[in-house]
Simulated assay, not measured.
Amino acid sequence: MSEKTSEGAGSLEDDWRDKREERVRWRLEREQQEKKRLQEMEESKKEKEQQWRTHIAELTSSQEKTLQDRLARLRRFREFQRKVLVEESGMEDGEASLTVNQLLTRM
């Protein structure tokens, strides 16, 4: 009987050891999956931040260009106004310049 008992005990010990090793493997797999998930989340976050930075840079550049274009149109229009006022005043450029500048400033 002692042989059967020792065989049974050995078999139980082997089963216990196998189950323990299996639990350790499962735990390691879960840890690896969690690390991978966290790494993917971090990469996704970095990618979204980069996309946001790119979007903001493009938006800022577009707004800057729009403002520069607007400024150029306003300057051309102001020059046109100045030219028309000088022509309508009938004065020479030198004497009309002060009066025209005062009129344009009031506008």
Rank of each mutant, 00 (worst) to 15 (best):
K83P: 01
V86Q: 01
S61E: 14
E87C: 00
L104F: 02
E87D: 15
E92R: 10
E95N: 08
I56E: 12
S62C: 07
L98K: 14
L59N: 05
E87V: 08
F80M: 10
W52S: 01
L104I: 11
F77W: 09
N101W: 01
L74I: 09
L59R: 09
T99C: 04
T54G: 00
E88N: 03
Q51P: 02
R82E: 09
E64L: 08
L104C: 06
L67S: 05
L103H: 02
E92V: 09
S89G: 11
D93M: 04
E95I: 15
R76S: 11
T60Q: 12
E95G: 03
F77Y: 08
R75S: 10
Q81L: 15
A72D: 12
T105E: 14
Q63F: 01
I56Q: 13
V84D: 04
E87S: 11
I56S: 01
L67P: 03
D69K: 15
N101F: 05
Q51A: 12
M91A: 02
G94T: 13
H55T: 12
V86P: 00
V100G: 00
E92I: 10
T66N: 04
L85S: 02
N101G: 03
S62T: 07
L59H: 04
R75I: 13
V100R: 00
I56K: 07
T99H: 08
S97Q: 07
G94P: 01
L67D: 10
E88C: 08
L98C: 05
V86R: 02
T105D: 13
L98A: 13
A57Y: 05
Q81W: 03
G90Y: 07
R53D: 06
S89K: 09
M91F: 14
E87M: 12
E88Y: 11
A72F: 02
